[in-house]
């Protein structure tokens, strides 16, 4: 046992559990902070847009598929246990009974998808500009989240598919802006911390 830990620490640390646990936990906290930051009203109806999904896209882009998935999963679990970390300062198992349960359950799978796609770009083609492929990665997560969100509204609230689709459309413009911001932020972060995506 002690022999194996010794050899892994003298090598160039290809896999550092301590750092990974810290990144997962700290980014779960980061999503919570994003969700709790004051929401700003958007559009004529003043629909409040929170930074919750921005935090999820950023976590996926910065941490990659596996760690991103675990960070978002940790955030969702702690919120369901009752800590008020969901958008608007809510928390608790009742969130699963609400119409937005589909979004909530899709957060972690969407982060896994976006993160895995983003890291495959970042690690394989260092020369080319990754913006186009990163956009694809974020949009894939966005589509998964929206589809699950619509299904959740239909299943949980018994709303018709067209009505659920219309309700989901309300959030699309804000979410597309958040996708763009997430990419614009993630690129300089990877330049500043090149070891993040080097596994």
């Amino acid at each position: 046992m002690s022999h194996s830990t010794h050899t892994s620490s003298t090598a160039t640390a290809p896999h550092n559990t301590g750092r990974d646990v810290a990144l997962i936990a700290v980014f779960a906290a980061f999503i919570a902070v994003c969700a709790l930051l004051p929401a700003f009203p958007v559009g004529p109806a003043g629909v409040p847009i929170t930074f919750q999904t921005l935090g999820i896209y950023l976590t996926a882009l910065v941490l990659g598929g596996k760690r991103g998935f675990l960070a978002v999963l940790l955030y969702v679990i702690v919120g369901l246990l009752g800590l008020p970390v969901f958008a608007g300062g809510s928390g608790g198992i009742a969130a699963l009974a609400g119409p937005s349960a589909g979004y909530l359950l899709a957060f972690a799978p969407a982060a896994a998808l976006t993160g895995a796609l983003a890291y495959s770009t970042l690690s394989t083609r260092p020369g080319k500009s990754p913006i186009l492929r990163l956009t694809g990665a974020v949009l894939a997560g966005f589509v998964l989240m929206t589809a699950a969100g619509i299904a959740g509204m239909v299943i949980n609230a018994g709303i018709s598919w067209p009505a659920a689709f219309t309700a989901a459309l309300l959030y699309v413009p804000g979410d597309l802006i958040k996708c763009a911001v997430a990419i614009a932020v993630a690129l300089p972060v990877h330049r500043a911390f090149p070891t993040l995506s080097r596994r």
Binding site: F30, V62, P188, A192
Partner: peptide, 15 residues
């Protein structure tokens, strides 16, 4: 996000 990553790295090293 940069200060968050830096903080996570410090915490990871402490762990």
């Amino acid at each position: 996000v940069m200060t968050t990553v830096a903080y996570a790295h410090e915490t990871g090293d402490a762990i």
